[in-house]
Design a binder for these strands. Structure first.
Length: 576
RNA sequence: GCUCCCGUAGCUCAGCUGGACAGAGCAUCGGAUUUCUAAUCCGAUGGUCGCAGGUUCGAAUCCUGCCGGGAGCGCCA
């Protein structure tokens, strides 16, 4: 049998349809018919708060409405009993036998009942997008990790996702870089540590440009040569990009991040004149102070410059070209950009212009708070950047110390593998478990937290369950938990079972809100309940049948944790 | 000057499309292991949800103002 999941969706539909049948006049009114998990255990498993809102519209007593609604809805197989409490809350307690059956089918499903609402739809996801010739630092981790989690979540929900790493590989800094490279570079250093060398060269070239107008002029000339396709400039630039990409790939490999496309800004270069032409043809752009702008004042936005006074194009032009190209090539239902908060205005402008150009697909900017250091913002010039590589190294190092202390019997190689999964997982989780829009002040302590609400806590729960399954197989070789029915006897068991049913809801919510922390919240809570279950209820020593039920429930929890963590890009070793 | 975001326990943060006495983790204090991984669990302490109004049966959540912090606002990306 297939359980009607997600349960809250199903129950909401049940009550909403009954309400609309009973009170057709409320159909277009804004009444929250949603059934949501109960806020407190004594209120049952789910609750509906619609009666109070409806009461206002119908000028009736809310408790009466609640009673009429329940009478109209009749019974639902999942609902054991209902209560009307307080001013008119409808409290639903699930039928435990139904929950048991739902878990029987759910725990056999690797997706834990998660639907695929995205089938047939494409999403382009634009994330990470570091700048060529600069090292990835801790400021890049948010876009990369949050973007990758949203990428994985959407794929899981059936969307065709095109993950595109929109590299910053074009722009005025390349004039200084090309010129500086010819003058200052050390080729040996460039081969060994390309990004560091390019960074050094850039800083020198930048400094000289501040003091020497002729140098600045020469840099501009280099940029023009590059943009006009001069073979020598082009070749050198290509080398910068390739070397940078190789360095970025080391980080991506460690983070388990893969892209379908790596198209930098340069990829759109040839399309820029066409974009300008379209804007002009449609009468959307006009000249102002020598530059070409799109006036957006009727949307309350400042004008957007799409061509500079000197005839050059800027990032706005590129981003418009990018939207158009993506729509043409992939026909996505939406394009999601994951960047920091500073680009909010920029994307509002880009989206407004794209719509005027006839772009239909949903355009979504998922922004997150800029990462800062306790002493303020960091920048290359202040020399206070913390490189991503160093953060990952430190995470693995600290994790390895803990692994060695806790599992001294394991071979060195396995300890290292566990430390990688735990360390990288901790770093990712620290970022993913926060509301993306919170302002983030980087501290080592926070970024590397490995106890409490952290990835290792969840990984630990998984490892414990793996161990339980091993022990079971060892001690009861002729029994099979996978076929035994799940029975929920103890309150903690029931709580765990109901919680497990809510996996799909958590994934769907995280996707809809583009907030991975909704998923981490769910997973953390599930493991907390599991830890309590593990602590208070014996399973391998439980009687026949009960033992199998508990082992099977544990296996279901492990499945949820593994799947959930994989959606966040976090590994789950069978031992930690 | 205008726009956006943030201000919740000593610290770090959830909760914010309004719902029933405000939740975690860390820290502090006290407990739990002859048994399935103690990277765990149980208990205690700890909050005028920045301030002041307003809307509502009901506000941390919505609206207005103020205070404090961050970011952005035409030729950088």
């Amino acid at each position: 049998m297939t359980a009607p999941l997600p349960l809250s969706t199903e129950l909401s539909r049940w009550l909403r349809e009954a309400a609309w049948m009973r009170w057709p006049e409320l159909k277009d009114r804004d009444v929250p018919w949603d059934v949501v998990p109960a806020t407190r255990p004594e209120f049952g498993d789910y609750q509906c708060n619609a009666a109070m809102s409806a009461a206002k519209l119908l000028r009736r007593a809310p408790r009466d409405l609640a009673a009429e609604l329940l009478a109209a809805a009749g019974s639902h197989p999942a609902v054991g009993h209902v209560d009307i409490a307080g001013p008119g809350f409808i409290n639903l307690t699930l039928n435990t036998a139904w929950v048991e059956l739902a878990l029987d089918s759910l725990s056999a499903d690797p997706r834990l009942g998660t639907p695929r609402p995205g089938e047939g739809q494409t999403i382009v996801m634009d994330y990470s997008s570091p700048n060529v010739a600069k090292p990835m630092h801790i400021g890049h981790i948010r876009s990369t990790v949050i973007g990758n989690a949203l990428d994985r979540i959407h794929r899981f929900l059936g969307y065709r996702v095109i993950a595109d790493n929109h590299l910053g590989d074009w722009g005025t800094q390349f004039g200084l870089l090309l010129l500086g490279f010819r003058e200052f570079s050390n080729l040996t250093a460039y081969e060994a540590e390309p990004i560091e060398e390019l960074e050094r060269v850039y800083v020198l070239s930048y400094q000289r440009s501040q003091e020497d107008p002729a140098w600045l002029e020469a840099a501009r000339a280099e940029l023009v040569k590059l943009q006009q396709g001069d073979p020598a400039a082009r070749a050198l630039w290509r080398s910068f990009v390739d070397h940078s990409l190789r360095e970025f790939d080391k980080i991506y490999q460690r983070l388990g991040v893969q892209f379908d496309l790596v198209r930098g800004e340069s990829w759109y270069n040839d399309r820029l004149p066409g974009v300008i032409q379209r804007l002009l043809d449609l009468g959307l752009a006009r000249e102002s102070e020598g530059a070409l702008i799109v006036d957006l004042s009727d949307e309350g936005l400042p004008p957007c410059i799409v061509r500079k006074r000197d005839g050059g194009y800027n990032y706005a032009t590129t981003d418009i070209a990018t939207v158009l190209a993506r729509c043409e090539e992939f026909a996505p239902s939406s394009i999601i950009y994951v960047t920091d908060e500073r680009q909010q205005l920029h994307f509002r402008q880009i989206f407004a212009i794209a719509r005027r150009l006839g772009v239909q697909c949903e355009l979504r900017h998922v922004w997150f708070g800029l990462m800062r250091l306790p002493e303020g913002t960091f920048s290359t010039r202040q020399g206070n950047v913390i490189k991503l590589e160093r953060l990952l190294d430190e995470a693995e190092k600290r994790a390895l110390e803990i692994v060695r202390a806790n599992s001294p019997d394991l071979p060195e190689e396995q300890q290292r593998a566990i430390a990688r999964a735990v360390g990288i997982g901790a770093v990712k989780y620290a970022d993913l478990s926060q509301n993306p829009q919170s302002l983030v002040v980087f501290t080592w302590e926070k970024a590397l937290a490995m106890d409490g609400n952290s990835a290792p806590y969840l990984q630990y729960a998984c490892a414990r369950i793996a161990s339980v399954l091993d022990k079971y197989a060892e001690r009861f070789p002729d029994r099979d938990w996978a076929r035994a029915p799940i029975r929920l006897q103890e309150p903690i068991e029931r709580e765990l079972g109901v919680r497990l049913l809510q996996f799909a809801e958590a994934v769907l919510q995280a996707a809809a809100a583009c907030r991975p922390n909704l998923l981490t919240d769910y997973l953390y809570n599930l493991s907390q309940v599991y830890s309590r279950f593990y602590q208070t209820v014996p399973f391998l020593r439980a009687p026949d049948g009960v033992r199998e039920s508990r082992v099977r429930l544990s296996a279901g929890v492990a499945q949820a944790l593994r799947t959930g963590l994989s959606l966040l890009g976090i590994e789950t070793p069978s031992r930690i």
